[in-house]
């Protein structure tokens, strides 16, 4: 891997006194997709929070395209080109669809190779949102809220996209739509971390896999290798 888009190095993180991440290291390559797997409570969301600056690593380093961001606040990390689609979507419920996108708008950083995301291009990707521009986000369906959360992240014109369980709580058909979107984003050259509990969703799209177990990195591998290793999957993820 020539450049790493996002790198966590020996990260320890705490919620109060509880030591949640222990010596976590992994690396997301440029224009690649890293699948981050693990059981409920393994520390996946905590990794995303550390990457986004919502939770400061107590030890270790976080860097974005080689630049240390360990102690930076979320708004500064966002300005470095990282965007988060958080678990549970967390759209701004009392804002309209349009306002959710509006407040997240940011021009792409210098040297960006892609056509910038604007409200129009987001609506072109999610036509269903376009029909609901002035609706309050709280009134959207779960799938629409997820699309809005993705659209909102894209409005920041990120180089690195962190997606925390985007399929959670969605009907299978909507999951397929969301996964198709994620595949498109990857093809556009975006570097993506995709957090999921279901490995089969991730194996189809990811280049690299990291499995967390109780706050530490248990496995670093690839979809092809892991597909052959049911025992390992069962050990760290339970039954699938």
């Amino acid at each position: 891997m020539a450049t790493s888009a996002l790198r966590l190095e020996n990260v320890d993180a705490f919620y109060g006194d509880s030591h949640v991440l222990q010596n976590v290291s992994f690396e997301l390559g440029e224009a690649r997709m890293l699948g981050l797997l693990g059981r409920n409570g393994a520390g996946k969301s905590t990794c995303m929070n550390v990457g986004m600056g919502l939770l400061a690593a107590r030890r270790g380093e976080v860097s974005v395209f080689g630049e240390a961001v360990t102690k930076l606040s979320p708004e500064l990390i966002a300005a470095r080109g990282v965007a988060l689609v958080p678990q549970g979507r967390r759209i701004f419920r009392s804002l309209t669809v349009r306002e959710n996108l509006l407040v997240a708008g940011r021009k792409p950083g210098a040297g960006s190779k892609h056509a910038p995301w604007t409200m129009d291009t987001v609506f072109a990707m999610f036509p269903r949102l376009k029909e609901r521009t002035s609706q309050m986000a709280a009134h959207l369906s779960g799938g629409e809220q997820q699309m809005l959360a993705i659209g909102r992240a894209l409005m920041g014109n990120p180089r690195v996209l962190l997606m925390d369980e985007p399929s959670e709580g969605l009907a299978p058909q909507i999951v397929a739509e969301v996964m198709a979107t994620i595949r498109k984003l990857k093809e556009s050259g975006l570097s993506i971390v995709l957090v999921e509990q279901n490995p089969n969703l991730v194996f189809d799209v990811a280049d690299d896999i990291v499995i967390l177990n109780t706050g530490g990195v248990a496995v670093v591998s690839t979809p092809a290798a892991l597909r052959q290793d049911d025992a390992l999957l069962r050990q760290h993820l339970g039954v699938f």
Partner: peptide, 24 residues
């Protein structure tokens, strides 16, 4: 206004407001 929407976003969910780059 956009400023107003940002303020409301900050009232809604201050952490997510910061995540999308709003200087809360």
């Amino acid at each position: 206004t956009r400023l107003g929407a940002m303020i409301r976003a900050g009232v809604d969910d201050p952490d997510m407001a910061r995540v999308v780059g709003i200087r809360v």
